[in-house]
Simulated scan of single mutants.
Amino acid sequence: MKRLLTLLPALLLLLLALRAGAHELRPAYLQIEQRTGQEFAVSWRVPARGDLRLSLNVRFDQGVTPLGPPVGRIANGYYTETWSILHESDLAGVSVTIDGLQNTMTDALAHIRWRDGREQLQRLLPDRPQFVVDRKASSGQIATTYLVLGIEHILLGLDHLLFVLALVLLVRSWKPLVATITAFTLAHSITLAAAVLGFVSVPQAPVEAVIALSIVFVASEILQRRRGRDSLAIRKPWLVAFGFGLLHGLGFAGALTEIGVPQHAIPLALALFNIGVEAGQLAFIAAVAAVFVLLQRLPPVQQWQLRTGQSVVTVASWPLAYLVGGLAAWWLLDRTLSMLI
């Protein structure tokens, strides 16, 4: 029974990691910006792995004239195409379709900016791969779009989720956990806002490497606690969560900065993206807690706990710490080498 309890959470986490890599879920991004009265610059970015990219393409209706072929390149996990188009009526009434989107599990965000300050924001889904350019984005549309983007970003960000899981395993009891997660939330909210508003600018590559390092550190502290040792992270986990939360906020900001926000609604988009991140984070913590509660209610597990006096969380903490720390150590090595090569 003890072997089952130690292996089951680790296997579940490994399956989660494999599943996350099995399908491409990162969003695509279309940006259209007016240069002159009739000319627009187009940038189309789709997820890529190595030299392969998702087969997604932008298609305008017949009223749009391209000015030369697109220029494409692959960098930082995305394939990006740029080109220019002409339209005699400010793109009003133009139909835009993302061909191939219906065959994926991802979505796409379209952001159009005019020289007079107007902006349109549209989120496209596999069952709705088309939209018509016709209006300025409403506050409700912006709020919904960035709330969903925030939820998606945290739930698809395996490194952020593993850091939260490591905090749960390190703290264990509810009151200190609430304080720790609150500190983490406050910290990454501060740096997220500072980066999006332009007060802080940090290259993403070292930030991603240090995020991996933060997971390795907390995983090692879980093992130190199991061995009965003491440290600052064990005594004051909220302080460590706050410090590393500042770095995780810069990671969130990198994703949001790449997507962009409507200039007329920066506070709204920023606030809803952050709320979405927190909603996804709380949902993940609730799911982790539910798994352990369900395990503890199984009759064989209850009998084993009465006989040994050990909880499921205590027994599962060390294999999960090794698995989480091992994955993070690999990311740290990979991200560090990527900066050096």
Rank of each mutant, 00 (worst) to 15 (best):
E208C: 12
V210A: 03
V210D: 01
V210S: 05
I211K: 01
I211W: 01
I211Y: 01
I211Q: 02
S214L: 07
V216D: 04
V216M: 13
V216E: 02
F217G: 01
V218E: 02
S220M: 14
E221L: 10
I222P: 02
I222M: 10
Q224S: 14
Q224Y: 12
R225D: 09
R225F: 12
R226L: 14
R226H: 15
R227I: 10
G228M: 12
G228S: 09
R229K: 15
R229E: 15
R229Y: 13
S231A: 13
S231H: 13
L232W: 12
L232H: 11
I234C: 11
I234M: 09
I234V: 10
I234F: 03
R235P: 09
R235L: 12
K236R: 15
K236G: 00
P237N: 02
P237F: 03
L239V: 15
L239T: 13
L239Q: 12
A241I: 03
F242T: 02
G243P: 05
G243A: 11
G245D: 04
L246R: 08
L246V: 04
L246T: 07
L247W: 00
H248N: 10
L250V: 05
F252Q: 10
G254F: 00
A255V: 13
L256S: 06
T257G: 11
E258R: 13
I259W: 03
I259G: 05
I259S: 01
G260I: 09
Q263L: 12
I266M: 10
L268H: 08
L268I: 06
A269K: 09
A271E: 04
L272S: 08
F273H: 06
N274H: 09
N274Y: 08
G276P: 12
G276F: 07
G276L: 10
V277H: 00
V277K: 00
